[in-house]
Design a protein around this nucleic acid. Structure first.
Length: 813
RNA sequence: GUCGGCGUGGCGGAAUGGCAGACGCGCCAGCCUUAGGAGCUGGUGUCCGGCUGGACGUGGAGGUUCGAGUCCUCUCGCCGACACCA
């Protein structure tokens, strides 16, 4: 027998009905011209790689609850959905399945599956605004935006040592290399290759991307810190070191520690630095060449590890310290990176740990120029990197090192041997990919005209249907130069898929706009996104790129907003068996099975009740019984209140009324603050109160109807099918989805009596029921009247009384 | 190594510096019965006690406070991010 038979609640009987009604009524279709205040609610769109599981679903359930809640609160909610549909998994999976499936067919098939799954979970979107990034109607605008970046000098092609994933056979952006490995293949080491590639100049926006983090005060602190660290702004000084015997050359270094300039005992060039070839003396050539070649061969993974022994060799050349005129040896080592600063450093082993280790390994001298507050150090076994007083620093001796750094920097600038300078860890964004399933870059390479942008009227550059790398598809790349008409070659790189997702939130605001990527007026109406919800794994990549795009579009006069997402919520992952739910682990729970067995509403409530939404949660197959029983309980309360025997103590109407108002307050606050787990708990308590009321012989009077009606409305965003069904059965007007959110009356929610905790020396000795707002004098009198309190005081009079009205009185003997 | 987060019953978790463990899962006892994976009632941190009750208890050690899961210092463990950025 079905467990639902006892309550009469059969989710499968009601869910399809309401899902159809919502669709027919266009619930959650966003009106561009609504007089209501707008609320742009967005969840990160999925990559359609197969059926969704309950790990993915958490995100969409949270988003749907918020949409329904905000809608009931009177907002015009924009809640769109789409598909991040270009990318390598489509190619890889298509190949894995025998090569018979085209990436596009695979992708479209997965989209259909996911869309149906969202539907049976009762998750609503404005599907009229659906975007699919692999659709020409979308990517022609991705191409148009590329041209915009190109015109603004923000897209350029250059030769660069790049990260190459040997499995995907394509390059990766810096952000996509994790511990020297491909972000999609944790067991595959990334190789270095020199290739000519397309880049977006995100570094030009480094300052603004960093500074504007301060505007994002509704973002998790954690994400802002991660972005700030990623951008990695540092302030330092560039200094020119003359080279002994090479009057035409000089060695430019960058340091954040000008206060240690007198402690330089050697210099180091990155192996790729152009000066290496010029400066190396004949006798050192072989050793230096060995270092250069070994570091080129070196796998990225080794180079990232700080445990590894350094490669190093002296060039035989010497630099002259411009501050004290000392000659110091110039070395080559792999621990200096060509990609940061000037690719050359001054080494101060006394005060930099890396320099210290290198000096130790090669027996190079160490000099102390900053004395710790405790006095000069002897027998150094590590670099001293803290603050102190300058010593061995000529005219700067005796200064504290902070002041010293400023003075020395001033001195360098006055002498014209260097200047203050700001550097970033952030690199330009490498966007070229050499595979098939991506957005073609709309340029043509002409022998005469060079790189020629495709004219806008020729967009889109369609991805050919034939599935093979574009570079192998002559029909695709054989074109005429748009400028001179000669034979030319179309660019065969496609764009990183993170570009597709860097502007999709703008396209939603006018998904069918025909003349531009988006209608500027509608974009300005809906933007910025009021609430953005997604996984923490996008804390850097997607969110940084999207912020960059928004700023460029702002600068181009196409968008008002300078930040795309006002409020960010990063939800935790769902684990099962200790591992993140995923297709590859095979531990996913299919929403289809849950819907079939327990219904969509129970599945939704369980996902919300499982724990704080910003933390990871462990899925329990058994625990969903709680939400199932809860919904049955609510159903019985509303549908057959007479089935509860009057066997318990009386609950006065006034108490019932008060509990209902308290529940409105609590649940509203919890929805606003994303505390869905405690919102569910509060509704469970309300249901328990309603039951107690019936069991106390409570009448089906106005207070009862108010309680039932409120329970249904408060529950509706989380369990919308039950909400609609019960709403219609109790005679609610229209759809519950359209009903107004209940208001609470602070007076009605206020308790008249409170429990006053009586402590003696901080230990609870009694609890008294007292009226709200009791005076301290009365409270003390009542407390002293307690037998147990007098016993605990043991005849002493309290020397101190701490009184917190309506909460506690503490008597300290 | 650096930065950040988290440690609370058998489990998921709750608690503006003020009754630790709300709510739920599980478990125990009982009731009801159309015998069920249903419903209802009560119980369920540990220890002492027949009950009233008492002692202890939020990873560990200190501290601030009348009062600390909550604030501070140190420490252990787990998780995440970054990791030669000069």
């Amino acid at each position: 027998m079905s467990p639902s038979r006892h309550s009469g609640y059969v989710p499968q009987d009601i869910e399809p009905k309401w899902q159809k009604l919502w669709a027919d009524h266009g619930v959650l279709k966003a009106a561009d011209d609504s007089p209501k205040p707008k609320f742009y609610n967005l969840v990160m769109f999925p990559y359609p790689s197969g059926p969704l599981h309950m790990g993915h679903m958490r995100n969409y359930v949270i988003g749907d609850v918020l949409s329904r809640f905000k809608r009931m609160q009177g907002f015009e909610v924009l809640n769109p959905m789409g598909w991040d549909a270009f990318g390598l998994p489509a190619e890889n999976d298509a190949i894995k399945r025998g090569g018979g499936v085209h990436p596009e067919d695979w992708t479209r098939g997965n989209i259909a599956i996911a869309k149906r799954q969202l539907g049976i979970m009762g998750v609503l979107y404005d599907w009229d605004r659906e975007v699919t990034t692999c659709d020409p109607s979308y990517y022609r605008w991705t191409q148009e935006l590329f041209l915009l970046f190109h015109e603004r000098g923000l897209a350029h092609r250059m030769m660069s040592p790049v990260n190459w994933c040997p499995v995907d056979k394509t390059v990766l952006a810096n952000e996509q290399v994790i511990n020297g490995r491909c972000w999609r293949h944790p067991d595959v080491e990334v190789e270095k290759r020199d290739l000519e590639q397309w880049f977006l100049r995100i570094t030009q926006y480094a300052d603004r991307l960093l500074d504007d983090l301060s505007l994002l005060d509704h973002w998790p602190e954690k994400v802002r810190v991660m972005q700030a660290n990623w951008i990695g702004r540092s302030q330092g000084v560039e200094v020119e070191f003359p080279i002994d015997g090479h009057p035409a050359e000089s060695m430019r270094i960058y340091t954040t520690r000008p206060d240690t300039l007198f402690g330089v005992t050697f210099m180091v060039l990155a192996p790729e630095h152009p000066l290496v070839e010029k400066l190396t003396v004949e006798s050192r050539r072989n050793a230096v060449r060995e270092v250069v070649e070994a570091s080129r061969r070196e796998r990225e993974i080794d180079r990232m590890s700080s445990e590894v022994k350094r490669l190093g060799a002296p060039t035989g050349a010497f630099a002259v310290n411009p501050l004290n005129g000392e000659k110091v040896a110039i070395w080559v080592s792999d621990y200096v990176l060509i990609t940061y600063g000037t690719g050359a450093i001054m080494a101060v082993p006394g005060h930099d740990q890396r320099d210290f280790e290198f000096a130790s390994q090669f027996s190079l001298p160490v000099r102390e120029v900053i004395a710790p507050p405790t006095g000069p150090q002897r027998d150094l076994d590590s670099a001293y990197t803290d603050h102190g007083v300058l010593v061995n620093s000529g005219p700067f001796d005796g200064l504290d090192n902070k002041t010293g750094a400023q003075r020395i920097a001033d001195f360098i600038e006055q002498k014209g041997i260097g200047k203050r300078s700001v550097k970033y860890r952030l690199r330009d964004w490498l966007i070229s990919r050499q595979r098939y399933w991506g957005c073609p870059i709309p340029v043509v390479h002409c022998e005469v005209d060079g790189i020629v942008a495709v004219p806008r009227e020729d967009l889109p550059i369609l991805l050919p249907r034939e599935y093979k790398p574009l570079a192998d598809n002559a029909d695709f790349w054989r074109v005429k130069c748009p400028k001179c008409g000669r034979e030319a070659r179309r660019e065969t790189d496609t764009m990183d898929t993170f570009i597709d997702s860097a502007w999709y939130f703008l396209r939603y605001t006018s998904a069918h706009y025909k003349t531009q990527p988006f209608d500027p007026e509608l974009a300005d109406h809906w933007m910025p996104v009021d609430q953005y919800t997604g996984g923490i794994e996008h804390a850097i990549l997607h969110l940084l790129y999207s912020r960059f795009f928004q700023k460029v579009l702002h600068d181009a006069g196409r968008a008002d907003a300078i930040e795309p997402f006002t409020r960010l919520f990063t939800q935790g992952m769902i684990k099962r068996g200790g591992m993140v739910m995923s297709k590859s682990k095979g531990n996913g729970v299919a929403p289809d099975d849950l819907v079939e067995r327990d219904g969509a509403d129970a599945a939704r409530i369980y996902e919300l009740f499982i724990g704080p939404p910003d933390e990871d949660a462990e899925w329990s197959d058994a625990a969903i019984a709680g939400p199932v029983r809860f919904l049955q309980h609510v159903w019985r309360l509303v549908e057959s209140p007479d089935s509860f025997d009057a066997t318990g103590p009386d609950i006065p109407d006034a108490v019932l009324r008060r509990r209902v108002h308290q529940a409105i307050r609590k649940v509203t606050e919890d929805y606003e603050g994303f505390h869905f787990n405690t919102a569910v708990a509060a509704l469970m308590e309300l249901a328990n109160t309603l039951q107690k009321y019936l069991q106390g012989g409570g009448e089906r009077d106005d207070d009862w109807h108010f309680a039932v009606r409120t329970l249904v409305l408060l529950l509706n965003p989380m369990a919308p099918h039950v909400g609609e069904e019960l709403w219609s059965r109790i005679g609610g007007q229209g759809l519950a989805a359209d009903a107004a959110w209940p208001d609470y009356d602070p007076l009605a929610a206020a308790e008249s009596d409170v429990t006053l905790v009586v402590q003696v020396a901080g230990k609870v000795r009694d609890r008294l029921t007292v009226p709200v707002g009791l005076s301290e004098k009365m409270a003390l009198e009542l407390a002293l009247g307690s037998e147990r309190v007098r016993g605990a005081l043991d005849g002493h009079a309290p020397s101190k009384v701490v009184y917190v009205p309506d909460r506690l009185i503490n008597l300290v003997p």
